[in-house]
Amino acid sequence: MFAYVLRRFAGAVPTLFIIVTIAFFMIRLAPGGPFDLERPLDPLIMANLERAFNFDKPLWQQYLIYLGNLAQGDLGPSFTRRDFTVMDLFRTGLPVSIQIGGMALSIALVVGVFLGALAALRQNTWVDYMVVGTATFGITIPTFVIAPLLSLFFGVMMGWLPAGGWGTWQHMVLPIATLALPQIAIIARLTRGATIEALRSNHVRTARAYGLPNYVVVGVHALRAAILPVVSYLGPTAAALLTGSVVVETIFGIPGIGRYFVQGALGRDYTLVMGTVVVIACFVIVFNLIVDILYAWLDPRVRYD
């Protein structure tokens, strides 16, 4: 198992390398640069800046330098937020994003699996219709519609919660709700479908034929099979939720890392963009690994190889 984890990480290195390479050359080949301000800088200062950040060297050299720094864990300075290194930005922003994303993920998992299983067990009753209807709603309405509507209703019209900002637990409620709602919907739908399929499977029929009580038939035999697709779904989703959402952070004004990519790309903050790419890719790799291990633990047919 330990060897497996090592092997997986070794396998992730080329993927990471390809992603970093594509991202590096795409953003660097884009027109414009980090020092293109409204007022052009003095050519002398410009030249100094370019020398300081190695922009005067050929691109492939810069690429190698970047890779070298990256290997040592140095993501470089931010160009748009002077005085900060990219690492500083993540050190302050990442905990915020993880806090919100982690809460949303936990809530979505618990509520989604519960609702999905409930709907499947009460198939074709009003409970089922309610869950399916709500889930369709949650899947269809995009975050950038839910977020301002929640903010408008609970923040502006009712005044129960702050419409935006960061600081107290009240500030976290609406962002977490926004992030969790669509995930609840997706997980509920996934769980429902898988549970219904599991309930129809031959081995559940066997369990019924042997007079096992309902809680064993459902809890032991149906739900474990039903949870498998949810586990697969969780990998990329967890990575996405924990690395922040640009929509939610923009609308509620949250100092997470979700906005860095868009801002970095628009401001040609090369190091910030690259840093975000690396962080997101690492999250994806780690969570896919966790999910695979979890899956193999839940399903003995899957082995580590």
């Binding site: 499977s201 031959n202 032991v220 474990r224 099979a225 399903d299 047919r301």
Partner: peptide, 10 residues
């Protein structure tokens, strides 16, 4: 169906 009548997970 001997292949599917037993729960594959236990």
């Amino acid at each position: 169906e001997p292949m599917t009548s037993l729960d594959p997970l236990y």
